[in-house]
Design a protein around this nucleic acid. Structure first.
Lengths: 346, 346
DNA sequence: CGATCTTCAGAGAGCGCTCCCACCCCGGCC
DNA sequence: GGCCGGGGTGGGAGCGCTCTCTGAAGATCG
């Protein structure tokens, strides 16, 4: 490991000496200056300025046991989807909110199963005050690690196994997938559509499952033939659309579980000579700018505030951190609302 | 700032007591165990295991002045290009290499001019051993900050002003843009093409400038009309291609400064009824998988090892950190080779 | 067989900071 | 005018670790 080359930086001791006060007083000023008389405050401030003093974080952490850093854990398959603007936005939200709390973002990138050891060691090493983790699958090792090293954590997206949040005392932030889906389908119903199909996402993602549930909430007796599954990619959407048209040529509306699949469906619909929205109305989910604005017709979709969810994750984590010990159970998870954005496709 | 809720973790003292040795011996074992007799080593190891001991990084940093963390500074406009797989790959390379050095990646996200204060404070606060920064423009404040706080740094991409690296004693890692461009153009020449156009990138990026230079190296007396400028987006490539065809309908080859612009050019060529590669041969730059494999015909392009460049940045930084004081000037920057990948378009 | 050398373990001094506590000084009170 | 109280300040004890230095062994040699 490397050696710090920056020459010796001034210490609090030096500041105190220059200002003609004790180290304790200098410390008080540096940390806000409460309970120190104005003339002294000024003297210390000036000394800090002149010396270019910056507190040594390690020393501070050693005694306060807080280090002003939060880990963001990203598993490789997820990160690959950075091209999916989803993560970019969420991380941006997290980053922004963290600066408000004067905390830093430490990126923990999980490449494979072997990496979990490293992650566990890091999390357990007290390098960070807390952790933010994303959309876990059932078999993920992370929950076990989190329980073991007891690091305060907030999940992004509802974890994929029942009772996870309460069991682990780990809250999560997710958007109202089910409610959003309901709104999308109700909108199609209100348009007078009678045979509304659904292109669902992968079964191991709670967001996809919740969206199916929302669809079913509205269409209690929907023909199972009207639901096909994709994997959130455009191609899978195109394939699913083709199958749907083969099985139920009479369908007059489609709710796709994300925008990418909706764009694929749109392609198929055009190839098959169906006009959108006249013959088939189409609604997506996510309001992903790069997709939604480039389709023709522009896509009606369900918007979720992704950056806001990132910020919320941070705020929730900070609350966990501040409540601390008092036997406080898991703070409630947060479900953010969605809004239907009407464009040309439905 | 938050409070650490994890209960008190075992200290080295506790490990030493349990193993029946002194704190010093326990420390030696934890740090590799050199110079300690095997039976004692085992005893300490066992104690560590039983207690679940993890060294307190803050305490360690306090005395060693090394903290095993490196900042990656990403400015907003660049990060927006996370959708551009370029950054994803580079950050992945950095992340991978850092784990090899047992260092962590701290993401510093610059949102605007005001943020530089925060960055400077952080960098100056000794939170990280060094920093990695990307493709700076002339007016960037970062170099000034780096000089002021004296944090060891490595740039990704050649900085945009002359002598920057040597002035700042900051090395950089870049690919051989000029050589790669030369190879691309030579390839077109070897195909018997006589009127080879170039779609250049923005003038404020050194990579774009170097690629023009490479083009001119080969075609010393190229008609200026054969060079148009884009901004690295597909649309700009399409526009530039249209202008080129208007001005020089006789052109029979195009070298685009990146794959995205090449894909745009391809679109225009098809619209204008030019066959690729029969009528017009086309070469891109970057070998960006998502573009290169989806174009029709598949794109011949110049590959750069982006992940490798990320890793190289880390290795260079580690070298800077380890050399340390001995009046060592800036370590030499590294230019990585490029390779021409022949596909169908040229 | 004693003197010198070589290991290897332990004692102890900090690293730079925060925070508890003792102390001082001054105003207000009896 | 002595006493109490409280705001302000300084002293000093650590936080958990590394690392130098000392010293006790055992190994080697004349």
């Amino acid at each position: 490991m490397p050696e710090q080359t920056t020459g010796s930086r001034p210490t609090l001791e030096a500041v105190a000496a220059r200002a003609g006060v004790s180290r304790a007083t200098a410390s008080r000023v540096v940390n806000g200056g409460a309970g120190v008389r104005p003339p002294l405050v000024d003297k210390v401030r000036q000394a800090v300025e002149e010396l270019g003093y910056v507190p040594n974080q390690a020393a501070r952490t050693l005694v306060t046991r807080r280090n002003g850093a939060v880990a963001v854990i990203i598993a490789e398959p997820e990160f690959r989807i950075f091209s999916d603007p989803f993560f970019e936005q969420q991380v941006r939200g997290i980053s922004r909110e963290l600066t408000a709390y004067d905390s830093q973002l430490v990126l923990l990138w999980v490449e494979g199963p072997g990496d979990y050891d490293r992650i566990a060691r890091y999390l357990g090493g007290g390098h960070v005050d807390g952790a933010l983790a994303f959309s876990l699958h059932n078999d993920d090792e992370l929950p076990a690690i989190i329980r073991r090293v007891q690091v305060p954590t907030v999940f992004g997206g509802r974890p994929g196994w029942p009772g996870a949040a309460s069991e682990l005392a780990v809250p999560y932030v997710d958007c109202d997938n089910r409610g959003g889906a309901r709104e999308a389908v109700r909108h199609l119903v209100s348009l007078g559509r009678r045979h509304i199909a659904h292109i669902a996402g992968p079964r191991d993602q709670t967001s996809a499952l919740d969206r199916i549930d929302g669809y079913r909430d509205v269409l209690l007796d929907a023909d199972p033939e009207l639901v096909r599954q994709g994997d959130f990619t455009a191609d899978s959407g195109a394939r699913a659309m083709a199958e749907l048209l083969d099985r139920r040529p009479d369908l007059d509306a489609v709710f796709a579980a994300n925008d990418l699949m909706a764009s694929g469906a749109l392609r198929t619909l055009r190839e098959r000579g169906r006009r959108v929205p006249q013959d088939v109305a189409l609604v997506g989910f996510d309001d992903m700018a790069s997709v939604v604005e480039t389709t023709d017709p522009a896509l009606t979709t369900v918007r979720q505030d992704i950056e806001g969810m990132g910020r919320l994750m941070v705020r929730l984590l900070m609350r966990v951190l501040n409540e601390g010990e008092p036997g406080a159970g898991a703070p409630a998870s947060v479900i953010t609302p969605t809004t239907l954005v009407r464009r040309a496709s439905a």
